[in-house]
Design a protein around this nucleic acid. Structure first.
Lengths: 216, 216
DNA sequence: GCCTATCCTGAATGACCGTTCAAGAACCTC
DNA sequence: GAGGTTCTTGAACGGTCATTCAGGATAGGC
């Protein structure tokens, strides 16, 4: 049984390697430019295996999206648990978005996902789910802050929606390397909006800049 | 000469029809899904002519982008000149973005353009130019308001950047028909941010709602 | 140590599509 | 109205891929 489980891992491992390869290739060339061969090479296997596991290129795309979702969620959880207190947490989010976490390359992946979501249902579902989780995480931080009395918002849902949308909008410029947009600017622009939107007092706002207490 | 000019129009007209067809097809199927045949059919001509005029499919894409730019600029000018006074104008912008102007379909076109801009230089240039113009228009309205004393902003440039980015971010949800996002919500969310960002007094803010004085 | 199901490969297939091309239409010049 | 340039067409070409397939490897069950 031990041996069986170990052996059974091999195919499963390859499968996963293909999914990661798919994401890597899409990140590099976009959905439109991703070839079965590219994925196979990146994963170190054959075209045949990609199709064996996922039936079609579109199937591989779809499957890779759920892996993406899982990892996104995991990383988000991990990241947010690192910092304690609503203000530092919010600040951390501001910095995460700028790519200290998933990096600029990933915003390009997001752009790709958005466009694919226009016409592909799997992509649409994945994108919606990712967005919902993201907004949920933001909402949680906002609620914490409201409870602690350091944030003020008459309509927290709307505030969250706006702050999330602002981040996406800024991300576009970051992803496309718009002249004048940098990760630092990204963070500061968003942070300023958050401070304004959530009525964070100047005293508290600068507290956030110290990065909060890291747990680990 | 008159006759010559008239005759010379025919090819030029066809050329332009092809460009419009290109935009229409891209809007419909995206850059990745746009075929030479689609464009030819949409324009009511042959594949050959598309290639004759633009050399390649990519050439047709590139050329269509400059047409897009021109029309965007024209429409923007026209739209903004329709309304008078900074607050109504800003409100008008809020409504324009929601698609009373170029409509939801066009946000999808924007998404396509963004993604293409990742890898295509023509698209990158077009996108940058469009964005600059758009921010410029917004900036102009903001400056008007500042001069008139109805807006307040310590850093107008940053405010404009944020408001423009917020619109893009909201647009993504509109383009992808995110559950819970509607044109009305789009307008209200953005407007609220603008009011907050530019310190518009409640009295003035509601004035904007009346739509301002239409010129034409 | 065979048997079978699963896993894996890479060559072959065939569809799709951008681009080329040969031929002809349109029309301007003189 | 002859000659030449510019336009226009649609058929043919050729390359690129996703997908299929026939054949092996692998390994677990017996």
């Amino acid at each position: 049984m031990t041996k069986a489980a170990l052996a059974a891992k091999a195919p499963e491992e390859r499968r996963e390697r293909i999914l990661r390869a798919t994401i890597a290739v899409v990140r590099e060339r976009g959905f439109a430019g991703a070839r079965v061969t590219d994925i196979a090479v990146e994963a170190g296997t054959s075209q045949g295996l990609v199709l064996y596991h996922f039936g079609s290129l579109a199937g591989a795309f779809a499957a890779s999206l759920t892996l993406l979702e899982d990892e996104f969620y995991e990383e988000l959880e991990r990241n947010l648990s690192e910092v304690v207190g609503p203000v530092p947490r919010l600040r951390h989010i501001a910095e995460l978005g700028a790519g200290y976490g998933p990096a600029v390359g990933d915003w390009r992946l997001w752009l790709e996902l958005w466009v694919r979501a226009i016409r592909d249902d799997d992509a649409r579902a994945a994108r919606e789910s990712l967005d919902t989780r993201w907004r949920g995480a933001l909402r949680q931080v906002v609620d914490e802050g409201l409870a602690a009395g350091v944030f003020a918002a008459t309509d927290p849902k709307a505030s969250v929606l706006r702050l999330a949308a602002l981040m996406d909008g800024l991300a576009i410029q970051l992803a496309l390397a718009d002249p004048g947009m940098t990760t630092r600017k990204f963070t500061e622009l968003w942070w300023k909006s958050a401070v304004l939107e959530l009525g964070i007092s100047p005293v508290n706002a600068t507290k956030g800049l110290q990065g909060g207490q890291k747990k680990s």
